[in-house]
Amino acid sequence: MHKFIIFTVLCLIFLLSCKKETTNKDQKTKENTIVEKNVEVGAVKSYTYNQLKPLLEKVDDKIYVVNFWATWCAPCVKELPYFERIRKTYKASNVQVLLVSLDFANQVEKRLLPFIAKKKLQAKVVLLDDVNEDVWIKAIDKNWSGALPATLIYNKSKRKFYEQSFDYKTLENELKTFLK
């Protein structure tokens, strides 16, 4: 009996440690590829989903708030200041904000860069430019229909996806469930 328990626990530990190791390794190799491959468009880098993926599953002590948005999406534009405020207010609590733009790749210079300048966005902005949306939308969250805006909040032990708009209070309350 006891042997069985010990065996199961050992198995679990083994599995968990394996997973962590590979993730870290993956992350390293992928981050390297990003440096080599991604195209810098002004101040905004363009990512494929495989390049973006490591940024959506970091295993460290930070809390990541990832917002999927676009300049032409009115509810997205409306809630951006809340993400900026979160970034400023919770900087000391190890919270990082990433803004993943789904603007059209050919409108980066015409729309996205001027928008970032005009709104004085301080959070890191990247462009996700990849076909096969069906694959990566489901990979980012199995329940995401693909509608914008959408937000992912995660840390190494918890992950939650929101296909909705936020007001500041609701966003802050959600973030607080990740802060200990």
Partner: peptide, 10 residues
Amino acid sequence: ETRAIGCSIK
């Protein structure tokens, strides 16, 4: 059943 990015219904 497939998915694509789209604008939320207003």
